[in-house]
Amino acid sequence: MTPRSQRLTKDRVGCIIAMIGEEAGVIVRTEDERTNSRVKYASAHDIRRGCAQRLINAGVSAETLKVVMRHADFATTEKYYGATRSAQAAASEVRQKMTTEAPTDALVGRLVGRKEKAPELNAEELLKLKALLERL
């Protein structure tokens, strides 16, 4: 029989994973003096979150994710799943609009609302601009 102190409880496994994360140098949050937060190394919960994110990215339904993550309430799953899916849909829409409706060289102009290409300056205009910038 395994001695009580040697048993692998969920808390003990969590501590072991945290020690491995620290030893491996896997940082999930950097130190921030403004908020007085310390460096946080990978933990069992970070692995859990990463697994959930990979399942969402793979297209697993919210209902399946709830079962896999063992959430008691669907609202918990939907809070994370819905936000991630909304962000993914928004990014996909922006990428699609910017790549199909605008040539690549006009991308920045489209983002700031300009549709036409900026005119090129001639040599005289470039010298005036350079002189103006040097005075600043």
Rank of each mutant, 00 (worst) to 15 (best):
T35M: 01
A131S: 08
I27R: 07
G59N: 13
I16E: 10
D11G: 02
P119E: 08
I56T: 14
D11V: 01
E134G: 01
V68W: 04
G59S: 10
V13C: 07
G82Q: 08
V68F: 05
T64A: 14
L132A: 00
C15K: 12
I17W: 00
L133G: 05
R70H: 15
R38V: 15
I16K: 05
K97E: 14
M69N: 04
E23C: 01
R48V: 12
G14D: 15
S92C: 02
D105W: 11
Q53G: 06
A58Y: 13
E93V: 08
V28E: 03
S5I: 02
A87Q: 10
T77M: 14
I56D: 09
I56E: 11
Y81S: 13
T76I: 11
T99H: 11
K66L: 12
R135Q: 15
Y81I: 06
G14Q: 15
R49S: 08
T9D: 07
A118R: 15
E22V: 00
G50H: 09
Q96F: 07
E78R: 14
I17Q: 04
S37I: 00
R7P: 01
N122T: 12
K66W: 06
I17M: 07
A44W: 03
G59K: 11
R70M: 14
V67C: 06
K10C: 02
T30Y: 02
E116Q: 13
V67K: 07
K40S: 01
